[in-house]
């Protein structure tokens, strides 16, 4: 029983069908208290549908979801009391001020936090009497997060919270999410930004075509790759890509920048591959002009699991 309560959100064999289309296909995962859990995937992967079923906004075709042990469907109103929801592309009332909107949404719950304190948390206290349309994109997004905090929820569901934001606004939102987690809250967010999933999330579920294709911490996802490192090379004279392969180099691609070729090698281990590679280059009489080693990213993880690139 203790184990059950440690998991704030549990999703079991979730299926959602729209006619012939299976938008969510046997998705299972659970999220412990205090975690920032990311669902990463392209548009149409089933991220939003999964969230909306957990939030009690949609009915699953099969399977179940629970929040703090309560069924999202049968105990929907109890679940809604303790979750904070930020919807993708959702707006607020045009003719109410920020303070009025927060007070109004607060009145929908048994327990609510005072609007001014919430506004102060994200530096919007001076905008308390403004309308939403007079806020910048980043301010609107911060506002929509504190609007999801009015009931002091245990779990937050943020659906693509940083989509369309500039890098600065995105970073300030990440800080806000981390501050929420420091309060002991649990956060589940969806994103299609690799960097966001990598730096913000404790664990990431990679979704594609309605299924979770991988679920781990970002570090383990990357380390689990066949070739978790990249070597970038520039050489004095051109060589055939095939000549670079072998000895732990699993894949070679060439970027041609106006005749200036850059070789991108995916390797399983830098320590094992690099000496052998340099030996071979000597044999090929190609001098190394430039060499860089990088860790693979979630982009590569996505590519490895789905066979396609995830476009930002």
């Amino acid at each position: 029983m203790r184990i059950v309560l440690d998991q704030v959100v549990e999703v079991e064999r979730l299926v959602k069908e729209y006619g012939q289309l299976r938008a969510v296909n046997l998705v299972s995962f659970s999220v412990p208290r205090g975690e920032i859990f990311g669902i990463l995937g392209p548009n149409g992967a089933g991220k939003t549908t999964t969230l909306e079923i957990i939030e009690g906004l949609q009915k699953p075709t099969a399977g179940s979801t629970r929040v703090l042990g309560m069924d999202s469907r049968r105990e929907a109103s109890k679940v809604k009391e303790i979750i904070g929801v930020q919807l993708q592309a959702s707006a607020y009332f045009d003719y109410l001020t920020l303070r009025e909107i927060l007070a109004l949404f607060g009145s929908f719950y048994r327990r609510c936090l005072p609007p001014d304190g919430l506004l102060a948390r994200v530096g919007l206290e001076e905008k308390a009497d403004s309308l939403v349309k007079h806020l910048s994109g980043g301010q609107q997004q911060r506002f929509s997060i504190i609007a999801s905090m009015v009931n002091d929820p245990e779990v937050f569901f943020l659906d693509e919270p940083t989509t369309g934001l500039d890098p600065q606004a995105r970073h300030s939102l990440w800080e806000l999410v981390q501050a929420i987690r420091r309060d002991g809250k649990t956060i589940i967010l969806t994103t299609h930004y690799m960097e966001e999933a990598e730096t913000l999330c404790d664990r990431v579920a990679i979704m594609d075509g309605g299924r979770i294709v991988a679920l781990e911490t970002p570090v383990k996802l990357i380390e689990g790759l066949e070739a978790p490192f990249h070597i970038r090379l520039r050489l004095s004279s051109p060589v055939a890509p095939a000549a670079l392969a072998g000895d732990g180099v699993t894949r070679v691609t060439v970027d041609d920048h106006d005749g200036d070729r850059e070789y991108l090698l995916q390797v399983s281990s830098v320590g094992d591959c690099l000496p052998a590679l340099l030996d071979r280059l000597t044999g090929l009489k190609a001098q190394v002009l430039d060499l860089g080693v990088e860790k693979a990213t979630l982009e590569d993880v996505f590519l490895a699991h789905t066979g396609k690139a995830l476009r930002d």
């Binding site: 939030e55 906004l57 809604k80 929801v85 959702s90 707006a91 607020y92």
Partner: peptide
Amino acid sequence: EKRILRRIQATPL
């Protein structure tokens, strides 16, 4: 259109 009704649906109201 603005998904305000959806947002309200996510509350106990």
